[in-house]
């Protein structure tokens, strides 16, 4: 026995007596009933999720099956599919197509830009570099979204820094040629779809980088060695091993970029042509127009699109590596 061995082992009891009151008693009780612990932890979030979150979603869904009386402007509470039919009028359907195309383009471009960044962070960055990576990715999220969008408007405006840069480099003809293109062009970058596209990518890129990085982080280096060892060139290793293993991260990231683009109404309003996106349509229909059912029907569109997208992704095996 060492001298520091405190009390005589014969005196010290092997078990402490049970707590009779206070936190000790609660701890003992919860320890004996692990189910109660889980229930206590989940009760509040479950209540929130069911009542406030799913409840309002149900109310939204319900409203999309009502319609509006165009004479009185009142909501008619009879179940109907008329409101959905209204989505397919050319004006409304254009809005949906425009938004989906933009969301797809933004998602694709974000994935292409985010992948190398995430790959570097997961494979090569260590210690200080990793901290710098997280800081660099998260920093834009610390400032106000509105300020960032307006800053971009200044960058992209006709009198903005980009125009100046092209002039300085004697490349104005290039910018003008680009702006003369149909669809993607316009009077200036800040009033074109290209501008909207660039700002969307800027705003959502962190949401694409982080999930991809997390997925790549879980791929052990030996997996890449093994592929190379079995004769695969780097490009083949990328296609057959890296990409499938990163797929869950890419899908997770694209859920963010896709759904955020589908629902956003601020960016297209500040930067871009004046043509509407789904978010703006919802905004105007529930506000000035007072057409809650049509707003609700518009809001259901992104939900349906996301559900279809996830179903396709699952069928394509994107979650096999999970």
């Amino acid at each position: 026995m060492t001298a520091g061995g405190s009390a005589d082992p014969a005196v010290r009891p092997a078990l402490d007596p049970p707590a009779r009151f206070g936190l000790g008693r609660v701890s003992d009780l919860l320890w004996r009933h692990p189910g109660a612990t889980v229930t206590a932890m989940l009760a509040l979030p479950a209540l929130w999720l069911c009542v406030i979150y799913l409840g309002s979603l149900a109310a939204l869904l319900a409203h999309s099956f009502f319609s509006i009386d165009h004479f009185s402007g009142m909501v008619r509470y009879d179940l109907t599919l008329d409101t959905y039919a209204e989505l397919f009028t050319p004006a409304n359907f254009d809005i949906i197509l425009r938004t989906v195309a933009m969301a797809a383009a933004v998602t694709l471009a974000s994935a292409v830009i985010a992948f190398p960044i995430a790959y570097f962070a997961a494979r090569y960055a260590r210690g200080r570099w990793k901290a710098l990576f997280y800081l660099g990715i998260m920093l834009p999220l610390w400032s106000s979204y509105l300020v960032k969008v307006y800053a971009w408007k200044l960058i992209l405006a006709r009198e903005g820094i980009l125009t100046w840069l092209f002039e300085t480099l004697h490349l104005s003809w290039l910018l003008d040629a680009y702006l003369a293109l149909p669809v993607v062009g316009g009077t200036s970058l800040s009033t074109s779809y290209t501008g909207t596209f660039l700002v969307f990518i800027y705003a959502w890129l962190p949401f694409m980088v982080l999930p991809i990085q997390a997925a790549l982080e879980r791929v052990p280096a030996s997996m890449l060695d093994a592929s190379s060892d079995l004769g695969a060139r780097p490009s083949q290793t990328f296609r057959h091993v890296v990409l499938p293993l990163a797929a869950p991260g890419i899908v997770a990231g694209s859920i963010f970029t896709f759904s955020l683009t589908l629902g956003d109404y601020i960016i297209p309003q500040i930067v871009g042509s004046s043509r509407l996106f789904i978010g703006q349509a919802v905004y105007t229909h529930q506000g000035t127009a007072g057409n809650i059912p049509l707003a609700a029907a518009f809001a259901v569109v992104p939900i349906v699109i996301m559900a279809v997208y996830l179903w396709i992704a699952k069928r394509a095996g994107a979650f096999d590596a999970l």
């Binding site: 030996s222 060695d225 093994a226 190379s228 060892d229 590596a321």
Partner: peptide, 20 residues
């Protein structure tokens, strides 16, 4: 000479089987 041009194969310590 890169690994993919060597007729040498490896059994890895963690086996490195492709999970997908």
């Amino acid at each position: 000479v890169p690994p993919y041009r060597r007729h040498v194969n490896t059994v890895f310590q963690d086996y490195a089987l492709f999970p997908h």
